[in-house]
């Protein structure tokens, strides 16, 4: 593929410049004035209430949608240049919010091979990629199973494998755990952390703040605009503000807030160990 060109490119993995988007000409903008960069190898979480524009933003990253104004660049390719469409899709893989939309055939290995087959690769290369992708998501032993017999979490990992088999350098996951139970969610989270550790750029959209705090940076969307983007410590400081943005307040912050309102002096922190320390101190100072 374009691997040579990709390796030579040293700019940000994803770059949005003053992006505006709406679905219909007479509608309000769903996204407006969106500018940010994601560095290669970075792990970014996007949070925001339902309808704030997260899924729309995800589709702009892989070129399924293109901006009405402004530019989106992925791996150096401009998404609204039709000559780049193919490069953009190969570069940024998107796992949709509703996983069932993505399953195309019934046997796991065929499902994962679907994308690479459309890239026109040699059969040997396809077989190798399918095995590699299924091993990465821990589903290799299910390669010959019928997709219908899998649990929701397993199915979602197969979907991710299908994207990985395309060898993207950016992986975008749109609320990967929303339909899953906690164990299924932990499985997906583990896969995304390992991919990130292996050098992939990971953008994850989530409603779960315990997942967002694991990211290098968190972006908060509200009514189609970026309200903050920064480290989890910077973003998750003010419980009242988080609530007004329709977000959950992470557990340590909730406890700290409740204690302060009861006159116990502890820091407003995301760090559970630090909170524990402060409580032990105020409960046992002599």
């Amino acid at each position: 593929m374009a691997a040579g060109a990709d390796n030579a490119y040293a700019g940000p993995a994803i770059s949005f410049r003053d992006v505006c988007f709406r679905y219909h000409d007479d509608d309000q903008h769903v996204l407006s004035g969106i500018s940010f960069d994601v560095a290669a190898g970075e792990h970014v979480a996007i949070v925001g209430a339902n309808g704030s524009g997260k899924s729309t933003l995800a589709k702009l990253i892989n070129g399924l949608l293109v901006p009405d104004s402004g530019t989106v660049t992925v791996g150096g390719y401009v998404t609204n240049d039709p000559r780049c469409t193919y490069r953009v899709r190969a570069h940024a893989g998107l796992v949709f919010q509703n996983p069932d939309d993505q399953v195309v055939t019934s046997i796991v290995r065929d499902d994962v091979a679907f994308g690479p087959e459309n890239l026109g690769l040699s059969p040997a290369e396809i077989v190798a990629r399918v095995e590699d992708a299924l091993r990465t998501v821990g589903m290799w032993e299910h390669a010959d199973d019928d997709v219908a017999t899998l649990s929701g979490g397993q199915r979602q990992r197969v979907t991710i494998a299908g994207i990985l088999a395309m060898r993207p350098s950016v992986l975008v996951l749109d609320e990967p755990g929303a339909m899953l139970d906690p164990r299924g969610r932990r499985g997906i989270r583990r896969v995304s952390r390992e991919l990130h550790a292996a050098g992939m750029t990971v953008v994850v959209i989530t409603q779960h703040m315990e997942e967002a705090v694991l990211a290098d940076r968190v972006m908060v969307l509200d009514h189609g605009r970026i309200v903050t983007i920064g480290s989890p410590e910077e973003v998750f400081t003010d419980p009242g503000r988080l609530r007004s943005l329709g977000l959950d307040v992470p557990f340590p912050l909730l406890v700290a807030e409740a204690l302060r309102s009861r006159g116990v002096d502890v820091p407003l922190t995301l760090d559970e160990a630090m909170l524990e320390e402060a409580i032990c101190r105020s409960a046992s100072t002599t």
Binding site: V255, A258, L259, S261, R262, V264, S282, A283, T285
Partner: peptide, 16 residues
């Protein structure tokens, strides 16, 4: 719950 936890910690700190 967080509320019950905060109540219990606050009372542990106060009684101390």
């Amino acid at each position: 719950t967080v509320e019950a936890l905060a109540d219990a910690i606050a009372s542990a700190c106060t009684s101390h």
